[in-house]
């Protein structure tokens, strides 16, 4: 029993990455009604950009991370402006096709540029672990959680205090009213994509040190991000955060007590179960179609 708090703690740390991934997905979904299936590939691009800056250009690590996140932001903005804007009113299938196409395109390009050999990134925080009775605090795990908290706080400030945030909230609620209020929706949407992709990129960079980096690394991370978003009802940021953290803990419990190799399958089964019982997610609302 004494390892349970430890498992929960590591689960929360892992879950903060899922929460970041889910936040990016939900932010973009709320603003434009599009699920970005390329989110994982974009996280991969960010991680490889960091790796390239670090090992190719020998930029200091923190600066490399900052530059890579800037690139992720630019990638998100460019994707919205150049591609997604053209299918804003297309049927869902077309939108899904586009983001899947981007997923393949980016994954393929990363493979061409960087090859398929596994790469790695160093830990961002390299302090020794702290023992607190039976509990061991791993600084890098605490760092993951701290990043989540800081980014969420920043996001809240952005949403509540800035004109861009007002636009983002308006987009997710009532486009017509937002337009009346004189908010340029196209610009807000582009910037939202930038922020959403940067969040995915942050999750990607944080995830790499504990695994290895290949063009397909982020498939799992993003599927967990989707699951977290669905758990949270796919529409609220708080749902995404809670969903992500919850998923991290559940995942860690499965890995410890059930079968480490089947965690994704069990999580997927939980997702199906949740959707079957509540088709709009655990915290979601029903949508009624009018004749």
């Amino acid at each position: 029993m004494s390892i349970l708090p430890q498992i929960v703690l590591s689960g929360l740390a892992q879950g903060s990455l899922y929460a970041l991934a889910a936040l990016g997905i939900v932010l973009i979904f709320n603003a434009g009604g599009i699920v970005n299936f390329a989110q994982g590939a974009m996280a991969v691009v960010t991680a490889y950009a960091t790796w390239g800056l670090l090992n190719g250009a020998h930029v200091p690590y923190p600066l490399a991370v900052a530059l890579a996140l800037g690139a992720a932001f630019a990638l998100g903005v460019a994707t919205e402006m150049l591609v997604l804007r053209r299918v804003a009113d297309a049927p869902p299938l077309t939108q899904i096709v586009v983001t899947l196409g981007l997923l393949m395109l980016l994954t393929g390009l990363v493979g061409i540029v960087f090859g398929h050999d596994p790469r790695s990134l160093p830990e961002l925080v390299t302090l020794p672990s702290i023992s607190l009775g039976s509990l061991i605090l791993v600084p890098s795990e605490g760092f993951d959680l701290a990043v989540l908290i800081v980014l969420v706080a920043a996001l809240m400030l952005l949403l509540r205090r800035t004109k861009l945030g007002l636009g983002m909230r308006a987009l997710s609620q009532d486009r017509f009213a937002a337009r009346l209020a004189g908010i340029s929706l196209t610009r807000v949407l582009s910037l939202t994509w930038g922020i959403g992709v940067a969040l995915a990129g942050a999750a990607g960079i944080l995830a790499v040190p504990s695994t290895t980096l290949t063009p397909a690394t982020m498939d799992t991370l993003v599927i967990y991000g989707f699951v977290a978003a669905v758990f949270g009802g796919f529409g609220t940021l708080s749902g995404a955060i809670v969903g992500g953290l919850l998923l991290g803990v559940v995942d860690n419990l499965i890995k410890t007590y059930l079968a480490p190799e089947l965690s994704l399958s069990v999580v997927f089964a939980l997702l199906l179960l949740a959707l079957y019982v509540r088709p709009n997610g655990l915290f979601g609302r029903a949508v009624v179609r009018k004749v």
Partner: peptide, 22 residues
């Protein structure tokens, strides 16, 4: 034979189809 090339090409193809020839 080129790692990633076919995936990139197919990705580009379906983006192009969705944009220009649904």
């Amino acid at each position: 034979t080129v790692g990633g090339l076919s995936v990139a090409l197919i990705g580009a193809a379906i983006v192009a189809v969705a944009l220009f020839r649904p």
